[in-house]
Amino acid sequence: MADFLDILLSRWRFLSSSEKLLMRDVCGSSEALAGLNKAEIETIIGRRLRIEKDSIKKTVDDAQNAQKILAVDGIKCLFFEAKDYPAQLAEIFNPPYALYYRGELPNWDRPGIAVVGTRLASGSGIDAAFRLGFELGQRGLPVVSGLAMGIDSAAHAGCCKAGGHTIAVLGSGPDRIYPAVNRKLAVEILSAGGAIVSEYLPGEEPRRHHFPERNRLISGLSRGVVVVDAPGKSGALITADFALEQGRDLYVHSAGLRASGTHERLDRMIFDGAPVIDDAEQIFRDWGIILEKRLPEPVENDNITSGQAGIRMAELLSDELAGKNIKFNGNYFRRACYESSYSINS
């Protein structure tokens, strides 16, 4: 069972991760920590806090509630000093003191790739994100995103359909799926062996300021970030900024450039050196992942006469039922089963 001391410290978001480690060393027990007042905390960390005096009591109540949920719902937790804490996340500025998660985290022997973009995505953007997630899933690379509508959902769905490992990072507790319409997708992610991850305590509801904060985790868990279909006010651009700050590889998908509306930030990323990609194979080449066979292409179903249409659709449906094809957003994708050599340039 998780130590209440660590649960409470993870709730104290008015402290940085380094300050939480200091408080842990100084206090040594949850009783000593919970008994501190604002002035005593300020003395230990050496700075003033911008919090209300009674907010300390509320955090204790929140942590006690979270501990009960952890015991009942089987939610797992991973604290900063644990040996299994993701190394790539530990190296970012102000990493989360704790990760609360449902499902299974990957062993990170292969790098994660974040696929992000707008909630109000174009059809071409949705197709591109699904295909990218599908290709990455087939290659065994974890796909990281935020479970939002639009690009995030398509990337998660594509990875799940390919039998891959996808990680959804929430702006709420791991037991509070947001948006609620994606609860079915969350179940699919867990059923496929993926994970629902959050730095927020179980029971915490989503709040507006949580989402920019969680974006640093999306990039932090990944080696590279692909921005798909992100107009000027998209939160995905915040993730792109974190990617640059954290030294991650940043890519722009061509589907976003074809979408209607403004994409000045995408143009700026490209000007600053972000490669434009059409599929996952270009990332693999960039990273030195050797392919023995091309990735599966969408099944072509155009340029057929009306007389052939019924036959062709029957063939596609038959292949779908046989597990050879999958269908998403009106398009069919062909499954590919193969092995290949795998090496990554550092």
Rank of each mutant, 00 (worst) to 15 (best):
K184F: 13
I126S: 01
F93R: 14
G163Y: 06
A87H: 03
A90S: 10
H165R: 05
Q308T: 11
I41C: 11
S254R: 15
A309W: 14
A128D: 04
I311K: 15
F211E: 02
R131Q: 14
W287A: 04
K76V: 02
T305L: 07
K324N: 12
V169W: 07
I304G: 00
S340E: 15
E292I: 03
I344K: 04
Y332H: 12
I177D: 08
K68G: 10
R334W: 01
S306P: 05
G74W: 13
L33E: 10
G164Y: 08
E281F: 00
I283F: 03
A309Q: 13
L170P: 15
C160A: 14
I218A: 04
G193L: 13
A186S: 13
D6S: 11
S346C: 06
F284R: 00
T166V: 10
N329V: 00
N329W: 04
W108S: 02
D175L: 07
V276F: 01
T43C: 08
K58N: 15
F328Q: 08
F80Y: 15
S234A: 15
N329K: 03
Q308P: 00
C337R: 11
I69R: 13
N215P: 01
N65L: 09
R208I: 07
R176E: 15
L237I: 07
R258S: 10
C337E: 14
